[in-house]
Amino acid sequence: MLEQQLVNALSLGSVYALFALGFTLIFGVLGVVNLSHGAVFMVGAYGALQVINHFGFPLWAGLLFAFLLCGLLGLAIDFLVLKPLRARGAPHLIPMIATIGVGIAINSAMQGIFGAENLRFPAGTVSEESLTLGGLHLTALELGIVLLSFVLMGALMLSLKRTQLGRAMRAIAESPKAAYLLGINVEGLFYLTSFAAAGLGGLAGVLIGLYSNALFPLMGQPMLHKGIAVIILGGLGDVRGAMLGGLFLGFAEVLSIAYIGSDMRDAVAFGFLFLVLLLRPKGLFGSLQERKV
Score class of each variant (00 low, 15 high):
2 L>K: 01
5 Q>T: 01
7 V>G: 00
10 L>F: 13
15 V>N: 02
18 L>E: 09
27 F>W: 15
28 G>D: 04
28 G>P: 00
28 G>H: 01
33 V>T: 05
37 H>V: 01
42 M>P: 02
45 A>K: 00
46 Y>W: 06
53 N>S: 14
55 F>V: 08
60 W>Y: 15
64 L>D: 06
65 F>K: 03
66 A>L: 12
66 A>T: 12
76 A>F: 09
77 I>H: 09
84 P>T: 05
84 P>K: 11
86 R>L: 08
91 P>L: 12
96 M>P: 02
97 I>P: 02
97 I>H: 03
98 A>W: 05
100 I>V: 15
102 V>E: 07
104 I>P: 02
105 A>D: 03
109 A>F: 14
109 A>P: 02
111 Q>D: 10
111 Q>G: 11
114 F>N: 03
116 A>I: 07
117 E>L: 13
118 N>H: 14
122 P>L: 12
128 E>A: 14
129 E>N: 13
131 L>Y: 15
138 L>S: 04
151 V>E: 07
152 L>V: 13
155 A>R: 11
157 M>T: 13
161 K>Q: 15
169 M>E: 07
169 M>F: 05
176 P>D: 08
180 Y>L: 14
189 L>Y: 15
194 S>A: 15
198 A>L: 09
198 A>K: 00
199 G>F: 05
200 L>E: 00
202 G>S: 10
203 L>Q: 00
205 G>W: 08
205 G>I: 07
206 V>F: 05
212 S>Q: 14
215 L>M: 12
218 L>G: 04
220 G>L: 02
221 Q>W: 12
225 H>F: 15
231 I>F: 09
231 I>L: 12
236 L>E: 00
237 G>D: 07
245 G>C: 10
248 F>C: 01
249 L>K: 03
250 G>D: 12
253 E>G: 06
253 E>K: 02
262 S>F: 13
263 D>I: 05
263 D>P: 02
265 R>I: 08
266 D>I: 10
266 D>Q: 14
268 V>L: 12
274 F>W: 11
275 L>Y: 11
276 V>H: 03
283 G>K: 06
291 R>D: 07
293 V>K: 08
